[in-house]
Amino acid sequence: MSQDRHVLFMPTILLGGLIFGVGLAWSRMARPEVVLDFLQFDDLGLLFVMGGAAVVTGIVFALATRFGGRAPLTGDVYERRLKSFDRNVLVGGTIFGVGWGLSGICPGAAYASLGIGNVTILWAIGGMFLGAYLQGYWRQHRTDTTTPTTAD
Protein backbone atom coordinates (compact mmCIF):
# COMPACT_ATOMS: atom_id res chain seq x y z
CA MET A 1 0.00 0.00 0.00
CA SER A 2 2.81 2.37 0.85
CA GLN A 3 4.19 2.00 -2.68
CA ASP A 4 0.97 3.39 -4.16
CA ARG A 5 0.97 6.48 -2.02
CA HIS A 6 0.95 9.93 -3.51
CA VAL A 7 4.30 11.68 -3.26
CA LEU A 8 2.69 14.39 -1.13
CA PHE A 9 1.06 11.93 1.29
CA MET A 10 3.76 11.87 3.98
CA PRO A 11 4.60 15.61 3.70
CA THR A 12 0.91 16.37 4.23
CA ILE A 13 0.69 14.10 7.27
CA LEU A 14 3.79 15.82 8.65
CA LEU A 15 2.36 19.28 7.98
CA GLY A 16 -0.92 18.37 9.69
CA GLY A 17 0.99 16.99 12.67
CA LEU A 18 3.11 20.14 12.89
CA ILE A 19 0.06 22.42 12.94
CA PHE A 20 -1.62 20.10 15.45
CA GLY A 21 1.48 20.27 17.68
CA VAL A 22 1.75 24.05 17.44
CA GLY A 23 -1.90 24.24 18.54
CA LEU A 24 -1.31 21.98 21.54
CA ALA A 25 1.70 24.05 22.63
CA TRP A 26 0.08 27.43 21.95
CA SER A 27 -3.05 26.47 23.91
CA ARG A 28 -0.87 25.19 26.80
CA MET A 29 -2.85 21.95 26.71
CA ALA A 30 0.51 20.21 26.43
CA ARG A 31 0.98 21.06 30.13
CA PRO A 32 -0.75 18.64 32.54
CA GLU A 33 -1.11 21.50 35.05
CA VAL A 34 -3.37 23.42 32.63
CA VAL A 35 -5.61 20.38 32.17
CA LEU A 36 -5.77 19.83 35.94
CA ASP A 37 -6.61 23.53 36.46
CA PHE A 38 -9.53 23.03 34.09
CA LEU A 39 -10.74 19.86 35.81
CA GLN A 40 -10.49 21.60 39.22
CA PHE A 41 -12.43 24.61 37.85
CA ASP A 42 -9.52 27.03 38.40
CA ASP A 43 -9.33 27.98 34.70
CA LEU A 44 -11.97 26.88 32.22
CA GLY A 45 -9.97 28.03 29.17
CA LEU A 46 -9.58 24.45 27.98
CA LEU A 47 -13.21 24.57 26.86
CA PHE A 48 -12.09 26.89 24.08
CA VAL A 49 -9.32 24.52 23.01
CA MET A 50 -11.61 21.54 22.53
CA GLY A 51 -14.51 23.70 21.41
CA GLY A 52 -12.41 25.70 18.94
CA ALA A 53 -10.95 22.55 17.44
CA ALA A 54 -14.33 20.81 17.16
CA VAL A 55 -15.90 23.86 15.49
CA VAL A 56 -13.17 23.86 12.82
CA THR A 57 -13.42 20.13 12.14
CA GLY A 58 -17.22 20.38 12.29
CA ILE A 59 -17.28 22.98 9.52
CA VAL A 60 -14.61 21.25 7.42
CA PHE A 61 -16.18 17.78 7.75
CA ALA A 62 -19.66 19.09 6.96
CA LEU A 63 -18.52 20.95 3.84
CA ALA A 64 -16.22 18.16 2.61
CA THR A 65 -18.79 15.37 3.02
CA ARG A 66 -21.42 17.44 1.26
CA PHE A 67 -19.45 19.06 -1.55
CA GLY A 68 -15.95 17.60 -1.46
CA GLY A 69 -16.21 14.42 -3.49
CA ARG A 70 -12.92 12.56 -3.10
CA ALA A 71 -9.70 13.38 -1.31
CA PRO A 72 -7.01 14.37 -3.85
CA LEU A 73 -4.10 12.35 -2.43
CA THR A 74 -5.89 9.05 -1.85
CA GLY A 75 -9.09 9.15 -3.89
CA ASP A 76 -11.01 8.22 -0.74
CA VAL A 77 -14.54 9.49 -0.22
CA TYR A 78 -14.89 12.02 2.61
CA GLU A 79 -16.71 10.51 5.56
CA ARG A 80 -17.65 11.60 9.05
CA ARG A 81 -16.11 9.90 12.05
CA LEU A 82 -18.93 7.63 13.16
CA LYS A 83 -18.13 4.74 15.47
CA SER A 84 -20.62 2.17 16.64
CA PHE A 85 -21.87 2.48 20.18
CA ASP A 86 -21.45 -0.31 22.70
CA ARG A 87 -20.58 -0.85 26.34
CA ASN A 88 -16.85 -0.37 25.63
CA VAL A 89 -17.47 3.25 24.72
CA LEU A 90 -18.70 3.88 28.27
CA VAL A 91 -16.24 1.62 30.08
CA GLY A 92 -13.31 2.95 28.06
CA GLY A 93 -14.44 6.54 28.53
CA THR A 94 -14.67 6.00 32.28
CA ILE A 95 -11.20 4.44 32.55
CA PHE A 96 -9.77 7.19 30.33
CA GLY A 97 -11.49 9.79 32.52
CA VAL A 98 -9.88 8.44 35.70
CA GLY A 99 -6.48 8.48 33.98
CA TRP A 100 -6.95 11.97 32.54
CA GLY A 101 -8.14 13.32 35.90
CA LEU A 102 -5.24 11.71 37.74
CA SER A 103 -2.47 12.77 35.36
CA GLY A 104 -3.81 15.70 33.34
CA ILE A 105 -2.52 14.13 30.15
CA CYS A 106 -4.03 12.59 27.02
CA PRO A 107 -2.19 11.03 24.06
CA GLY A 108 -1.86 14.00 21.66
CA ALA A 109 -1.01 16.43 24.45
CA ALA A 110 1.60 14.00 25.79
CA TYR A 111 3.44 13.90 22.45
CA ALA A 112 3.36 17.70 22.25
CA SER A 113 4.57 17.90 25.84
CA LEU A 114 7.82 16.24 24.77
CA GLY A 115 8.25 19.02 22.22
CA ILE A 116 8.01 21.76 24.84
CA GLY A 117 10.84 20.10 26.73
CA ASN A 118 8.82 18.14 29.25
CA VAL A 119 10.99 15.04 29.52
CA THR A 120 9.12 13.98 32.67
CA ILE A 121 6.12 13.23 30.45
CA LEU A 122 7.90 10.05 29.34
CA TRP A 123 6.41 8.48 32.48
CA ALA A 124 2.96 9.10 31.02
CA ILE A 125 3.88 8.03 27.48
CA GLY A 126 5.44 4.82 28.83
CA GLY A 127 2.30 4.25 30.87
CA MET A 128 0.09 4.74 27.80
CA PHE A 129 2.01 2.17 25.78
CA LEU A 130 1.80 -0.25 28.71
CA GLY A 131 -1.95 0.38 29.03
CA ALA A 132 -2.53 -0.04 25.30
CA TYR A 133 -0.54 -3.28 25.39
CA LEU A 134 -2.43 -4.61 28.42
CA GLN A 135 -5.85 -4.01 26.88
CA GLY A 136 -4.72 -5.55 23.59
CA TYR A 137 -3.30 -8.60 25.36
CA TRP A 138 -6.41 -9.00 27.48
CA ARG A 139 -8.85 -8.55 24.61
CA GLN A 140 -6.99 -10.97 22.37
CA HIS A 141 -6.81 -13.56 25.14
CA ARG A 142 -10.53 -13.11 25.73
CA THR A 143 -11.44 -13.55 22.08
CA ASP A 144 -9.07 -16.52 21.75
CA THR A 145 -10.60 -18.39 24.66
CA THR A 146 -14.26 -17.43 24.34
CA THR A 147 -16.54 -16.96 21.40
CA PRO A 148 -15.24 -14.38 18.96
CA THR A 149 -16.77 -10.96 19.40
CA THR A 150 -16.84 -7.99 17.12
CA ALA A 151 -15.63 -5.72 19.90
CA ASP A 152 -13.36 -3.19 18.31
Binding site: K83, V91, L102, M128, Q135, R139
Partner: peptide, 25 residues
Protein backbone atom coordinates in the same frame (compact mmCIF):
# COMPACT_ATOMS: atom_id res chain seq x y z
CA UNK B 1 0.44 10.23 38.76
CA UNK B 2 1.76 10.47 35.20
CA UNK B 3 2.63 6.78 34.99
CA UNK B 4 -0.54 5.39 36.58
CA UNK B 5 -2.71 7.92 34.76
CA UNK B 6 -0.91 7.03 31.54
CA UNK B 7 -1.68 3.32 31.94
CA UNK B 8 -5.37 4.12 32.47
CA UNK B 9 -5.37 6.50 29.50
CA UNK B 10 -3.78 3.79 27.35
CA UNK B 11 -6.40 1.23 28.37
CA UNK B 12 -9.38 3.58 28.29
CA UNK B 13 -8.72 5.34 25.00
CA UNK B 14 -8.20 2.09 23.11
CA UNK B 15 -11.12 0.29 24.73
CA UNK B 16 -13.36 3.32 24.23
CA UNK B 17 -12.37 3.73 20.54
CA UNK B 18 -10.70 7.09 20.81
CA UNK B 19 -9.31 9.94 22.84
CA UNK B 20 -9.51 13.69 23.10
CA UNK B 21 -8.60 14.15 19.44
CA UNK B 22 -10.44 11.18 17.92
CA UNK B 23 -13.67 11.45 19.86
CA UNK B 24 -13.32 14.96 21.26
CA UNK B 25 -12.27 16.88 18.16
Amino acid sequence: RLALGGVLVGIGTRLGKGCTSGHGV
